[in-house]
């Protein structure tokens, strides 16, 4: 009886399991398509929410700097400027520090220090934006206002970048807080890249009598150049979209000023501050369009970063294969 039952059950099972297989494959496929649906959803929502503003203001939206809810004139230039400048400041601060730290972690540090230090940097990445903002308001800003900014003004006041009144909240403060936020990502990506540089490279340089720094420069840095650039752009992608901490320290003033002590405003901050309170339809449309611009430029930055990092890994795998 048992022998009779087995073949029939197997026969019955087969089509059923095929159905199960197919159903499961389709289920997982549908779920993986979720990401595509989400990207389309974001683009569609933002475009739908802003089409009136796009048709009304056209290109002027990106090129004019009046943000005037009374006259219903909306130009996003100060926000674009603020986003770009605060992000670039952050990169200027973060990239050298991150790469130097990555070098320290992969090439120089005593072995026992590497893991704890790397973990510490990962912990910094885990600190929420809003908490960094809280710290920014009550610790960093007062310190910048009382000590760092006056010193900067005394030393570099002759340039246009460090002039004017010192409020504390400022473009520079925004840049510094973003720098703190993107240090961990750039450092960890840079570290991964340097770790993947084949040791053969280093040994070859040592064999030529190079010092430790020359090995790093010749064998590691020049080799990893593209990847490090990719890491920086990845950091830029994060920097552009940073919201809470920046909103809390940048001063929220839509203006274009050369001085880094002057307050600024970013695309993300203006959405955070004004989105729930835009009284008229056009105002809300303009904010949706700001969202669209922000979405566009972060996607571009991320595309570029992926591309750079991808060519880097391709280079590595082909070299290793050789």
């Amino acid at each position: 009886m048992a022998t009779a039952a087995v073949p029939t059950s197997v026969l019955q099972l087969r089509p059923a399991s095929r159905f199960g297989d197919r159903a499961f494959e389709w289920l997982t496929f549908a779920m993986s398509l979720g990401v595509v649906v989400l990207v389309i959803l974001v683009g569609w929502q933002l475009a739908r929410g802003s089409h009136l503003a796009i048709t009304k203001f056209g290109f002027h939206f990106l090129a004019t700097s009046t943000w005037d809810p009374v006259a219903e004139q909306y130009g996003a230039l100060p926000f674009i400027y603020g986003t770009v400048v605060s992000s670039l400041l952050a990169l200027i601060i973060a990239v050298p520090l991150s790469i130097a730290t990555a070098i320290y972690l992969t090439e120089l540090a005593p072995l026992w220090i590497r893991q704890p230090l790397a973990s510490g940097i990962e912990m910094l990445a885990a600190i929420p934006s809003v908490i960094l903002g809280l710290w920014g308001i009550f610790v960093m800003i007062p310190w910048l206002r009382a000590h760092a900014f006056p010193a900067l003004k005394a030393a570099l006041g002759w340039t246009p970048f460090f002039t004017g009144p010192i409020y504390g909240v400022s473009m520079l403060a925004g840049g510094i807080i973003i720098a703190i936020m993107i240090l961990p990502i750039i450092t960890s990506v840079a570290r991964e890249i340097m770790r993947s540089v084949p040791n053969l490279q280093r040994e070859a340089a040592y064999a030529l009598g190079a010092t430790k720094w020359e090995v790093t420069r010749i064998a590691v840095l020049s080799y990893a150049k593209n990847g490090l650039f990719g890491a920086a752009i990845l950091g830029l992608g994060r920097a552009l979209g940073e919201t809470m901490a920046v909103t809390m320290v940048i001063g929220n003033t839509p203006q274009i000023k050369a001085s880094l002590f002057a307050p600024g405003y970013t695309l993300a901050s203006v959405i955070a501050n004004e989105f729930t309170e835009a009284t008229t339809d056009m105002y809300l449309q303009a904010l949706f369009e700001i969202g669209l611009v922000l979405f566009g430029i972060t996607i571009l930055a991320n595309l570029l970063a992926q591309l750079l990092l991808k060519t880097m890994t391709r280079k590595m795998t082909t070299r290793v294969a050789q």
Binding site: T66, A71, Q73, G251, N252, T253, Y265, E274
Partner: peptide, 9 residues
């Protein structure tokens, strides 16, 4: 909301 000539927000 107005178009502020100066100041922090």
């Amino acid at each position: 909301s107005v178009n502020w000539p100066t100041g922090l927000g």
